Computed example of a mutant assay.
Amino acid sequence: MINEALREIRRGCAEIIDEARLETLLKNYFEKGETYTVKAGFDPTAPDLHLGHTVLLHKLATFQKYGGRIQFLIGDFTAQIGDPTGKSETRKILLPAQILENAQSYKDQVFKILDPEKTSVVFNAEWINPLGAAGMLELTTTFNVARMLERDDFDKRYKGGISISISEFLYPLLQGYDSVHLKSDIEIGGTDQKFNLLMGRHLQRAYEIGKEQAVLMMPILEGLDGVQKMSKSLGNYIAVADAPNDMFGKILSISDTLMWRYYELLSAQSLDQIEALKTGVEEGTLHPKKVKEALALEITARFHSEAEAHEASAEFERVHAQSEIPTEMDEFTLEGPIWVAKALVDCALSPSTSQSRREIKQGSVKIDQQKISDEQYQLEAGEYVLQVGKRKFARLKVIL
């Protein structure tokens, strides 16, 4: 059982530090029934999670299968500073009300993956606020500025003459202090968090709590383009809160190569099951599209329901495979005649008229399922179905 657990825990990992401690914790669980704690921190800087965030959640769920009790840490205090990881400038400070609203949104979403009975949701303001000035000063004595500037993003900004606030130096110290207070056995995070994760080990030694956490790092999930990391700002993301049809369609849009990355990091299928699917595709007994559809069904059902996932699958087949229009779409009424590029913007199908014109040039725009090429096309009185790309539809009524 220990080997099986280690195999699933190692799955998709980029790096594990102190694997011997991890093995000891698992051994004590299987032989003595002793549980252990696994910490993961999330700063509620935005209200919605996307599938890139859930890579960590899936790993936490794996630990829950093998004796781990999850410390799901919401950084309501540290979010006021903002994690400087990978940032080329100081981040704006969020208002407390926005942080609390985002934190509640996180709580509503994470239990679609985690077992609430094996999860403690904690907020780091509970122990950082009581530190006070004296405690904060003591914390700053545990690390020096030279070591802090070894961190890659700080080093680049310092050499480039770009401002670094003192509060940003505090961020990794506070994240590490979370591990001191919680006495975490393991902490997990993305590969970009290595400096902060190791700070937890350092501070557990400095504060002599009698243990040093093992560290497990997960890779950053690529977005729909298969190149850049999944990000809302890049528009290549799949949100946990996406509607079933959107989620299903977005997953089917990924490449056949990227599909295996998503299977490894997001699917509940075992490694042996995934290997069998790969073999089937390679030998030609399974079509890649069918395997991708199975992944889309699994993920959509996880965040919605089995019924909604199957409805999304049927709708996708009807709309895309049979070139039909969706049964439901947003409806708009506009005064006409109206320029088609503006109509696309007003119907929330395009962000700007210039983008609308580019999409018309690319052949991505259809009116009543017929492509248009005239960028100056005017819509007269009547009812139309507007379409941009494969997934964006709107029903428009033009009145004079």
Rank of each mutant, 00 (worst) to 15 (best):
I16R: 04
T24D: 14
E34L: 08
A40H: 14
G41T: 12
L49R: 07
H53E: 12
L60R: 12
A61E: 01
F63I: 11
Q64N: 01
D76Q: 06
D76A: 11
G82S: 07
D83Q: 06
L94S: 12
Q104M: 07
D115T: 09
D115L: 04
N124I: 09
N129L: 15
L131Y: 00
M136G: 01
E138I: 00
T142Y: 05
A146G: 10
E150F: 11
R151D: 14
D152P: 03
I164H: 01
E168M: 01
Y171D: 08
Y171A: 06
L173Q: 00
Q175E: 07
D185G: 03
D185K: 07
L197I: 15
L203V: 04
Q204R: 05
I220N: 03
D225H: 08
Q228M: 13
G235Y: 09
N236S: 04
N245C: 08
K250F: 08
L252T: 13
S253H: 01
L277E: 07
G280Y: 09
E283K: 15
K289A: 14
V291N: 05
K292M: 06
A307N: 13
E308L: 12
S313C: 14
A321C: 02
E328H: 13
D330W: 02
T333H: 05
G336T: 03
I338L: 14
A341V: 05
L344F: 02
D346F: 01
A348M: 09
P351K: 11
T353N: 11
S354R: 13
I360S: 02
Q376Y: 13
Q376N: 15
G389D: 10
I399E: 09
L400H: 14
